[in-house]
Structure formats: C-alpha cells, structure tokens
Write a protein that binds this DNA or RNA. Structure first.
Lengths: 111, 111
DNA sequence: GTAGTTGCTACGGAAAGTGTAGCACACGTC
DNA sequence: GACGTGTGCTACACTTTCCGTAGCAACTAC
C-alpha cells in the first residue's frame, strides 16, 4: 500500500494540496533526496541503489514507488532506474546544493 | 539527546563524512525542509511554527535543535526562530523549487 | 538443472513521529 | 501577593515508519 504524495492531494500535515507542500513532503521523506542524488549520473539497478545508500529494500522500494508515481523516476528494463525528464529538471535545481554544502562545511569547521 | 548531522561526521547510512551526504541526510528528515521553508519570510515563534506545519512539539523541537546545530537556524529572543545568514543562503537555493513545483503539478495533471 | 541476476515482499524488532498534557520561567496587571 | 498570558520545551503512551534478514518468482546463460 503506497501513500500518494502528489500535488492536488493534501501533503502530510499540510491539508492544502499546494504543489510546493507536496514536493517538500515528498523530498522530506527518508532516502528520497538521496535516491534522486544517486541517479544523477547514470541509471542504477535496484540492488545497486540499495547498496549505494545503505537502506533496506523495503524502504528503497517504497521510495522508488513514490518517485515513480510522481514521475520523477522510471524503470528502464535495459539499464535500470533512472530520472525522467521531469526528474532531471528537479535534479538541476538540486545540484547547487553540492557546491554549497562544501561551503557550509567550511563555515562550520571554521567555528 | 540530539543526533548530530554535521559534515565531517558520517551521515546516516553513508559512512563518509562528505558534506553533501550530511546535507541530504539533514534535509531528508521529516519536517526539516518544511521548517526552513516556513522561515523564509519572517521569524516564527515555536508554537507558531508548530501550528504552521502541524507537527508535534517533540519533533519540531528536535528538528530545530538539529538546524541550530547546523547553524542554519537561530533563536532570537525578540522575534523568534529565524534563518541565519547560512540558512538564508540555503533557502536561496531552495526557492526555485516553488516555481518548479507548479510546473511539476501541471505536468502530472496533464496526465 | 542450476547458478546468477532481476525486482520485490514478509516479518519481527527497533527507531522515529504523534497527540495531549503540562512544566518552568518571564512578563504585565490588578 | 495572586492571577492570567506567552515563552521554549519536556513526558509519556500510542502509532507509524524503518531496519535487517530471509526469501520468492521470473528471466538469462550455460
């Protein structure tokens, strides 16, 4: 049983169906951001993905189901799980986080 | 007892201390993204924040503690919880999600 | 047939989140 | 003094989510 996290349907704890809330809810679930991140370069097989992030198959499958329902990820029989065009658009917005996280780490290290 | 999510210390399920992993781990916790989002315009009081997102005080407090430890959020006695300069930088990277989420919603609605 | 890979599920125990109540402290007001 | 109000935060029992391990069914290769 997969709980829907699509815009139009109220997001967890928001009651409104505003897309941004649905998106924050979706991305705020454990491993979701990480899965999108690990698919940034090449398609990954189910087990490969599972090993990369180190989560249980149960939850990897649940997150993948949500991401597929949200049309951010799709399963290609030949290559494995990969980002859809929509998913790649989202990834493009998330990529700056990589560089910023380095800056953030330095700021924290500097005390 | 607050679990640390700082870069340098290994993120949940990552083993490496890479900043991006720490960041994805931090933001991937329930309500974290949402809290940052709700602080985008003005400082919020503890209860105000709690009502806005509709989560239990326990978890709001836990997330705020993590965000404060990560120096993204701070508590100002006069005005309430607000983003730090570092937090505002992060928010700037997240803001494009708002517009994109609308596009995403339309794409899904279009079938 | 049997060994490997695929995506995925079952299940018991551990961890995280929920909902309600309430504490301790400060402030203002009578 | 005793009250009410707002502050951040905690306690506790209940529920949901997640983890770790095992394993299934289908397909491919040999």
């Amino acid at each position: 049983m997969v709980k829907s996290v699509l815009p139009g349907k109220p997001a967890r704890g928001s009651r409104t169906g505003r897309p941004i809330m649905a998106l924050l809810d979706l991305l705020g679930r454990r491993w979701t951001l990480r899965i999108v991140w690990e698919l940034r370069e090449e398609p990954r097989r189910f087990r490969e993905l599972q090993d990369l992030i180190g989560a249980s198959p149960t939850i990897v499958n649940a997150r993948l189901a949500e991401l597929r329902e949200a049309r951010l990820v799709e399963l290609d029989a030949e290559s494995g799980y990969r980002l859809t065009p929509l998913g790649r658009e989202l990834l493009r917005l998330l990529l700056p986080l990589h560089h910023w996280s380095e800056k953030w780490a330095k700021a924290l290290a500097a005390g």
